[in-house]
Design a protein around this nucleic acid. Structure first.
Length: 507
RNA sequence: GAGCAUAUACCCAAUGUUGGCUUUGGGGACGGUCUGCAAAACCGUCAAACGCCGGUUCGAUUCCGGCUAUGCUCUCCA
């Protein structure tokens, strides 16, 4: 069996994954800021770390997956007005801050479930951990790496960088930062421009505020993740994940904070997913080019030619390696939709074939490997075994899907008769069934999007199909065509199967 | 300015090579299967892809050097 290797952003290398505690994995992923609705770009990290989580579980690890909710302390524009993002939006929408937070948290959870993402083990909120954050800030001050100015506390980056490798994760050089850091109002409070806020004093009109040793205020953005990851995963844990854009300054700051407080870099493996782009440009607030998830699902964005289902989007993301950029386009989404359909239909077919096989041979693997076509049988087995290798190689879901696709013609041919049923050994057939279920459903987290859930509708369809069948047997084609054509107008496609059966799909 | 990407067959895109037929999705084309006819679906084929110039090599898309083009990041950000 091969070993799991992951690309560690911290060392910029692929490394064998060895958990700190054998059999257990602690994983922290930066969650959403619930001051607004999630857009397509946000879907990527959560789907990425979902299949990583699923794969670790598949490997038999006991995983504690912590993903936070940022519901405070996140500045829209640090320094400028010292305005809390949440508080600002709340005033705008005439909502209590926590009401706003609840609304978008609910919406976020709904979207995650649409994507069939598993829930994290712990989902802590920033506002629920103010005490821990203050404690950490106090430690940093005691160690001499933070200073207070007018009720705000800043981290002394220059001092830190003199002793510790600041910028290692993001590949920044402190001197460069001096030159390129944006000019901000309120910079005068900081000793140096690259210093970041641990605690901000709240102006009188600020709604979200907490008491602290430095007066009333609210926590800085970076400290929440440090506080919560330490609390639930320990001073050092296995995996820290998030979007690539968080490397700097967010994760770099987390490293600095934890290094002072806990004497360790917080995580051993740093995994970062790449961005989703729109016409080559990152989807983000500043570019005003984001498509919200609800718009994706309903197709109500000017750029969208049609709605795209959550599974189509999930599949679209899975088709590309998580460290590559992924460019949005209608064409690519439509291709994903078709590809997923093709793959899923073959999977449904395979389940039937494998079930029949099991019925014929309840003993399962007890049957001798009698493949009518040993070469094909070997090829199938090889393609299946490679799936594990691909996932072990830094979660290469794109290659996994390519191999599964390579098996689609085999499955279809098994049904179509181009390949005889006994060409593959019973054991291989059952293995195929197991691997497809394991990979498609359990690891990649895909699920069927059954259109015919409605019992009544299914009943009506069966009735219509029955009537049409009668008509056809009487060679009353005008009636049978009428049924077929009118259903087509309603968007329901009838399909005459080879074996005389009829199936239907919603266009 | 600094840093980092990318350049793929008829078209669009993904994936990859410790250097020797890599693979995949979509579009399109052609042939076939199925069918009362169709549509759809399915099977097969699309014969030599890997930006340009050099180098190393028996051999480079893959390694090295240079060049061109395009794009991204360096601020909050997933």
């Amino acid at each position: 069996m091969s070993q799991l290797k992951v690309h560690n952003s911290y060392t910029r290398q692929k490394e064998v994954f060895t958990p700190i505690t054998p059999g257990h994995v602690g994983m922290y992923v930066c969650g959403p800021t619930v001051s607004g609705e999630s857009h397509l770009g946000h879907a990527r990290p959560f789907i990425t770390f979902d299949f990583i989580y699923r794969y670790l579980l598949h490997l038999g690890y006991k995983v504690r997956y912590v993903r936070n909710i940022t519901d405070a302390g996140h500045f829209e524009e640090e320094g400028r007005e010292a305005e809390d993002k949440i508080a600002k939006k709340a005033t705008l929408e005439k909502l209590e801050p926590m009401e706003l937070v609840q609304k978008y948290t609910n919406l976020f959870h709904w979207a995650m479930h649409q994507f069939n993402n598993l829930d994290p083990s712990i989902e802590p909120t920033a506002t629920g951990h103010i005490v821990e954050q203050i404690g950490m800030i106090e430690t940093i001050m005691k160690e001499g790496y933070a200073y207070e100015v007018n009720g705000s506390v800043y981290f002394d980056v220059k001092k830190y960088a003199a002793r510790y490798p600041y910028g290692k994760l993001s590949g920044r050089v402190l001197d460069d930062l001096l030159e390129t850091t944006r000019d901000l109002d309120g910079q005068d409070e900081k000793h140096n421009r690259q210093d970041f806020a641990l605690w901000k004093a709240a102006p009188p009109e600020h709604i979200m505020r907490w008491k602290s040793p430095w007066g009333e205020g609210f926590p800085g953005w970076h400290i929440e993740c440090s506080a919560m990851s330490t609390k639930y995963l320990g001073e050092q844990f296995d995996i820290h994940g998030g979007g690539m854009d968080l490397q700097f300054p967010h994760h770099e700051s987390e490293i600095a904070q934890s290094t002072i407080c806990n004497k360790h870099v917080p995580a051993r493996y740093w995994l970062h997913n790449n961005m989703i782009t729109l016409n080559g440009r990152k989807m983000g607030k500043s570019y005003n080019n984001q498509i919200r998830l609800t718009e994706m699902f309903t197709g109500t964005h000017p750029l969208l030619l049609q709605p795209y289902s959550p599974m189509t989007i999930r599949f679209f993301i899975l088709q590309t390696h998580y460290r590559s950029t992924l460019d949005f386009s209608n064409e690519a989404l439509q291709a994903a939709e078709k590809g997923l359909k093709r793959l899923w239909e073959a999977y449904e077919l395979l389940k039937k074939i494998a079930a029949e096989q099991t019925a014929l041979d309840p003993g399962g693997t007890a049957s001798p490997a009698t493949a009518g076509d040993p070469a094909l049988d070997d090829k199938v087995r090889k393609l299946l075994l490679e799936l594990d290798e691909f996932m072990d190689d830094d979660f290469n879901t794109a290659k996994v899907l390519a191999n599964l696709f390579e098996l689609v013609p085999v499955i279809n041919s098994l049904k179509g008769g181009q390949i005889r049923r006994d060409a593959l050994s019973p054991a291989t057939l059952q293995m195929m069934g197991k691997y497809f279920t394991d990979y498609l459903e359990n690891i990649l987290g895909l699920k069927g999007e059954s259109a015919g859930d409605d019992q009544k509708l299914t009943g009506v369809m069966e009735l219509l199909i029955d009537i049409r069948k009668d008509a056809r047997s009487r060679k009353d084609y005008s009636t049978s065509d009428k049924i077929r054509n009118q259903l087509l107008e309603l968007g329901i496609v009838l399909k005459d199967e080879k074996d005389g059966g009829v199936s239907f799909t919603f266009a």
